[in-house]
């Protein structure tokens, strides 16, 4: 079953200014869609609209052909959104942070396997050895990596990533780029904003705002 997120005649107004108007989008399995535009051109607003967080817009959204408001639960069960703020609690260790996210995705945190999965995910983002350190003592890049560990931890078809490369080092950027391509190749779908130059790929598509 392939996924398909469509927008028809999307328009968003902020402070008497149209961020975008008449936007038609078709996002399907196996694509990486990069949203481009200068600062303040509405990239984050568009991602928030497409991930069902903002309701202050005109136009219609469809998920697999059905109107978004009717299938919101199914949509959310397949969505992984990483926002501008990493969503990491500084008072908790990376492991505890991930355990909560895993519970939100429906996996019991008492499960032996689930801790194993969290540890694996942290190792895959290069945070082995930092599992029990309070996230407040980690650097900005490391905190971002904890958030990115969810990409591996929670298998979801649609990834919506707002500036995922922020504060990540060069090595990490290459690994993340590969992860995005692998996800698209496996039939997933990635929606991303970034100012970072992505390596050209037949799966990559651009949408320019502003």
């Amino acid at each position: 079953m392939s996924l398909c997120l469509q927008a028809r005649q999307l328009a968003c107004e902020r402070d008497d200014r149209w961020l975008f108007q008449g936007l038609d989008l078709d996002i399907r399995s196996g694509e990486i869609v990069r949203i481009e535009g200068p600062n303040g051109s509405g990239k984050t607003s568009l991602l928030k609209i497409l991930s069902g967080q903002l309701s202050d817009y005109q136009g219609e959204l469809f998920w697999n052909g059905a109107a978004m408001k009717d299938v919101r639960e199914h949509f959310l069960a397949n969505l992984l959104y990483l926002g501008h703020a990493p969503g990491i609690k500084t008072g908790l260790s990376p492991l505890e942070n991930l355990a909560w996210y895993q519970a939100l995705s429906g996996t019991s945190s008492n499960d032996k396997d689930s801790e194993e999965q969290c540890l694996d995910a942290l190792e895959s983002v290069g945070l082995a050895g930092f599992e029990e350190v309070p996230a407040g003592q980690l650097s900005a890049g490391q905190q971002r990596r904890v958030a990115l560990a969810r990409l591996k931890l929670t298998p979801r078809a649609l990834w919506v990533l707002d500036e995922p490369f922020t504060a990540i080092d060069r090595h990490g950027v290459a690994a993340l780029e590969k992860q995005l391509v692998d996800h698209a190749k496996a039939g997933g779908c990635v929606l991303v904003t970034t100012h970072h130059a992505l390596t050209a790929s037949p799966l990559l598509r651009h949408i320019a705002l502003g």
């Binding site: 079953m1 399995s29 196996g30 519970a103 429906g106 298998p155 979801r156 078809a157 039939g187």
Partner: peptide, 24 residues
């Protein structure tokens, strides 16, 4: 791609409300 699509299957909402509430 269409041959590989099964690698990321679409999920149904499974519930797990109690787990999520307890974790919170």
């Amino acid at each position: 791609i269409s041959q590989q699509i099964s690698a990321v299957p679409l999920r149904e909402y499974k519930g797990g409300l109690l787990i999520a509430v307890k974790a919170t």
